[in-house]
Amino acid sequence: MDALIVNTYPVTARDYTSAGHASADIKRRLKQLGVGGDVLRRVAVASYEVELNLVIHSDGGRLELQVFPDRVQLTSSDVGPGIPDLALAMREGWSTANDEARSLGFGAGMGLPNMKRNADDFDIQSEVGKGTTITMGFRLQ
């Protein structure tokens, strides 16, 4: 099935000032399409978390929004550094965020578990030295 909307947002590593702009735009676009309530909030939260992860942890990447008639898909892909231990990274409270990210209120180790909790489908693939791809699906009622 073809996507109704495909939009890609480049995300710059360590750009804490702009972090969140892509997610705000994604939320606005979905709202314009009539997506609301619980699913809109879940997409927004997961999107913001994954965008912040790109800023805090990656060497740069992009966030892609795809809207289908029955679902929303968010895909985050980066160019590294990759996650050595995915099981550990998925654990609540585990974080490798730096002091700058922590001073802004992040790095609580809730990002990945929170994305998984909010998405209907969650997949993460990572290879050290290559990068990480996170795919999240959200069913539209």
């Binding site: 969140g20 909030r41 913001y48 992040f106 609580a108 929170n114 909790r117």
Partner: peptide
């Protein structure tokens, strides 16, 4: 910790915080 806020809160909640950076608004 905005990550904790994102994990547990819904829209009818009031956020009490000492953090005054743009991410509180986002």
């Amino acid at each position: 910790l905005m990550s904790d806020v994102l994990a547990f809160v819904d829209e009818k909640t009031v956020l009490i915080t000492g953090l005054t950076n743009p991410h509180v608004i986002r």
